[in-house]
Design a protein around this nucleic acid. Structure first.
Length: 335
DNA sequence: AATCCAATGGCCAGCTTGCA
DNA sequence: TGCAAGCTGGCCATTGGATT
């Protein structure tokens, strides 16, 4: 199975949906009436329902996440000559998807978390198509009883005490966040020679913003610090899910950002002629690409004895903030 | 830059806990 | 005692990161 990007010719009810995943078969299969290059009609109907008809999905990335989950499962069926529509009547005995699950974790070496996410998409595909293309489902719904004392999932069912979930799902465990110690933070900052990169790292460490939020950080929120206060509260909008959020920039950092805007950034912008609402520009005076990995590579090229990634800076902020709040108990916050 | 696995954190909604 | 904030765990939309 191959995924192809739609062009702007792809439209539904006169609305154009470019970059939508189109899932096509790779091999002929006479038994199933499939020629290579044909669209998988069932997968397409499901994806259109899941990503376009429903109102919850907004990001094109999400189209591709769901498209890839489905494409990989259907590739498994295609390569092993399995008919994904032929589900045995007794769902307790049906092994098609559970065999795929065990292959993901075993042979492919995928984590339980990722495999579960693939499984949820496949489960939704079957749940969408049952009655349309298949008589029964490749899984059964397990009733999970709710512990009344602990109120486990008590909210999910109105009649109380029970919740239904696919029996394919595996148990997952929480992983610990990776962060830098105070010593490592100092080592990191002193290792950075490029002043702009240093400012970017400081902004991450002191506000906990994500990589994408850093690279798309709005220019217009940077202003000259005039008042005698500890920090400046600013709103940023280009966040995960485009939710606006308020962050706090310490005054000293705000001063340095203001100087950057009026000196180094101004010179770069004059040289390149780029007009941008992004605070940070690359050394060529261009905007950073928000999904690029250049910032992470810049951190890596410092060759520090410990691992640093953009998201670790966020964890570092959160961990030290929590530690600080625990040490200096405030009446305002409950850590 | 494309691909795809891994990780993140908001959501749900009723009971528990904290606090005045 | 009464009110409001906090907690809870699986689901899901979205982003991060490593590899190619």
């Amino acid at each position: 199975m191959l995924s192809i990007k739609s062009t702007s010719d792809f439209e539904i009810e006169s609305v154009k949906y470019p970059n939508f995943p189109l899932l096509t078969w790779e091999a002929d299969n006479q038994e199933l009436g499939i020629d290579s290059g044909m669209l998988c009609v069932e997968a397409m109907q499901f994806l259109i329902y899941e990503c376009l008809k429903r109102g919850r999905v907004n990001s094109e990335n999400t189209w591709w996440t769901y498209g890839n989950h489905l494409a990989q499962f259907l590739t498994f069926c295609e390569q092993n000559s399995l008919d994904w529509r032929d589900i045995s009547e007794s769902s307790e005995d049906e092994m098609l998807v559970s065999a795929y699950r065990d292959l993901c974790v075993g042979e492919f070496g995928m984590s339980v978390n990722s495999t579960n996410q693939h499984l949820r998409t496949i489960v939704r595909f079957y749940s969408y198509g049952v009655g349309k293309w298949f008589k029964s489902l490749p899984y059964s719904l397990e009733s999970v009883s709710v512990n009344k004392g602990q109120q486990f999932l008590a909210h999910t069912e109105r009649n109380g005490g029970k919740k239904y979930s696919s029996d394919l799902m595996m148990k997952t465990f929480e992983k610990k966040a990776k962060f830098l110690s105070a010593i490592e933070v100092r080592e990191l900052l002193s290792a950075i020679e490029n002043p702009t990169l240093k400012l970017m790292v400081r902004l991450c460490l002191q506000t906990g913003i994500r990589r994408k939020e850093l690279l798309l950080f709005p220019l217009h929120v940077i202003r000259k610090p005039t008042e005698n206060r500890a920090y400046y509260a600013v709103n940023i909008s280009r966040t995960k899910g485009e939710r606006e959020r308020k962050i706090h920039i310490p005054t000293r950092l705000m001063e340095d950002l203001w100087r950057y805007v009026n000196e180094a950034r101004f010179q770069k912008q004059q040289a390149s002629g780029v007009v941008s609402d992004c605070l940070f520009l690359t050394s060529d005076g261009q905007e950073w690409t928000s999904q690029g990995s250049a910032f992470g590579k810049a951190l890596k090229s410092l060759n520090l004895p410990f691992h640093v990634s953009p998201h670790m800076l966020r964890h570092t902020y959160a961990t030290h903030m929590l530690k600080g709040m625990l040490e200096h108990k405030s009446s305002k916050f409950e850590p």
